[in-house]
Amino acid sequence: MTSQDVSHRAKVTLPKTAYGLIAILVLLVVASVTTPGFARVDNIFVVIRAASLTGIVAIGMSYITISGNLFALSASALGALLAVLFALLTAALGFAAGLFLTLGIAVLCGLAQSVAISLIGNPIITTLAFGTVFRGLAALFSGNSILRIESEAALWLGTARPLGIPTQSWAFIIAAILSWFIIRHFKIGREIVLCGANPKAAVASGLRVGLVTAIACAALSIGVAVMAIMTVSQFSQAKADLFMGYDFDYIAAVLVGGIALRGGKGTPLQAALGAVLIALLQNFMLLHGLSAGVRMTIVGLLVIASISLFHILQGRGR
């Protein structure tokens, strides 16, 4: 073996999604060895189902992060508002109207946030404020009561298992593939990545930064709407305090997936893998009887480790 061979091999780099897959495989092996019943096919389906709704929102959140806008802290509150509106609209106008109007309202909420982000310039503060507005509106519209729906179509959407796989998991898989395709193969997808990689250069070169932010916010809002609609459909009811405290889960999936915190690097597929990895870890801890506090601590540590590892790998790559 020559020294040239060695240096050539050292330069071989894995795609970012491979890190997520390797982490999932390592955890699968460790959990299978240490946890009876973990490696069963039905348990793996359970894990994917547990990752699905968080994963769908994380995929939407990845658009925000990749576009250089860090995170939106309004996702869980928007979910509550959309859940309440979907229940009210479905009860009044039927399932189909409820579904499409909720998706439309979600896009409008996303666009309103993007305009505010463009004006204020700080996505964290802006979305935090919007989150408070959304939660307040959810409480107002629901009258602080439980809203129930009676719709066979909604119940099917929330509980059916086409080909033995829950509808939520189908939605997750479709969202992951579609989002990855848009980022990789559409012009707007490439603009999202470029805006995140260097916002100043993006402005100077005439990229549509405002449109990019609008698309990113709308993508997140659609993901949130899908989560809200599927949750309400599954349990046939909505409340203003749904999804409280979930924002960290979405952000954790994005970060654990290895998407660059400052934007410009990563794909929605990584966020999806991040969600699956966290769900696997949660399942492993749950089967070992660890309390919610311990589970939260470990997931938090995983996020810190992921960000640190990502920065180390970035440093080496320079």
Partner: peptide
């Protein structure tokens, strides 16, 4: 609420 109950029950029952 239901969503949290489902998450846990769907994992411990199997």
């Amino acid at each position: 609420l239901e969503d949290e109950g489902y998450k846990v029950a769907a994992q411990i029952i199997p």
